[in-house]
Design a protein around this nucleic acid. Structure first.
Lengths: 171, 171
DNA sequence: ATATAATACATGTATATACACATAATAAAA
DNA sequence: TTTTATTATGTGTATATACATGTATTATAT
């Protein structure tokens, strides 16, 4: 890859700019290694991204995780999905899906029933109200994501490939 | 930057390899854009990294957040730190530091007292037991981090710069 | 000096994570 | 078929996040 140099200086012509170096974010002067720093940068950026998008969801009365479940359900709609299927698609794999569903059912955004085929399974379906609220959320969320992640197409691809390289493990 | 091409194919000569493309991780066939995909990759990689390191801490009986607080306290040791100072150095800025401290005090890894200078402040100090357990944790954590994040020095620097570019905002 | 504002922290509540364990239903084995 | 194992989910507990609110202390303003 040939990446264009990330020139932050050019932005100084504008009024105020908050360059969020990790050193400033964590008030730490130096890190053990660049590998270590990359790890902390990933963790901190994820927190930053999640808390920024969570704020946007607040007016809709749902959490980031509930939004995630609704998106997963809509992806298969009108097909039903069981807890296991939803869990396997969650960003945070240890999410306690039954309890996230509980709250969505209370809000009538999701319907829940026992599967006819396998009575161990609980099958979920997004309701019309759920689709409606999800669509409104999605507009805001996509716009927020685009404004938060201000990278070129090329840079976005590189960051995905580097992150996927990190997660690639032999065994 | 001139990044070496990330050649994943070369790894196939080994026995088994788990290439964690985001599509596989989230069982999703495609994403709205590369920007969007980058965002999800950041969130998912952070979860993956955090849950992997959390497992390592389990034998020491502390959580990722407690480890973080201990490291912050040791960084200033033998100086005392108040809640506000600790909070500003946390990776997750909304951490409820007083309650994380509660658990560390119960385990006698941290001592807590009211500040003499400003009685609103509570000042914390890591104990000898705290330093001892932290040192053991750090050995394991650093090794884990290095084995999880298998990037070249150059790639690690690029990923940090891209993440810092994302967080850089004008206002 | 007194009133008001700001600060630092504690605490309460709802939600979520992480994980252990219980239970019912299904699959597999003897 | 009966037993055993596995699977899918529910539930309980400890910890953490996110956020609102209360309280004591300090700073500021009049």
């Amino acid at each position: 890859y040939i990446l264009p140099k990330i020139n932050l200086e050019i932005l100084y012509v504008h009024t105020y700019i908050c360059i969020m170096k990790l050193e400033a974010a964590l008030k730490s002067s130096k890190f053990k290694s660049n590998i270590h720093k990359a790890g902390l940068n990933i963790l901190y950026t994820a927190w930053w991204l999640k808390s920024s998008t969570t704020k946007e969801l607040k007016e809709f009365g749902i959490t980031h995780e509930q939004y995630n479940v609704l998106r997963i359900l809509k992806g298969k709609h009108p097909e039903q999905m069981c807890v296991k299927d939803i869990a396997s698609r969650m960003i945070e794999k240890n999410s306690n899906v039954p309890r996230i569903i509980d709250r969505l059912v209370i809000k009538k955004l999701v319907k829940r029933a026992t599967s006819e085929i396998d009575k161990r399974e609980t099958v979920m379906n997004i309701t019309a109200a759920g689709i409606s609220i999800l669509d409104s959320c999605t507009v805001v969320m996509d716009k927020t994501m685009d404004s938060l992640i201000d990278l070129t197409e090329e840079e976005a691809i590189v960051i995905s490939e580097l992150l996927e390289k990190i997660r690639t493990k032999e065994s």
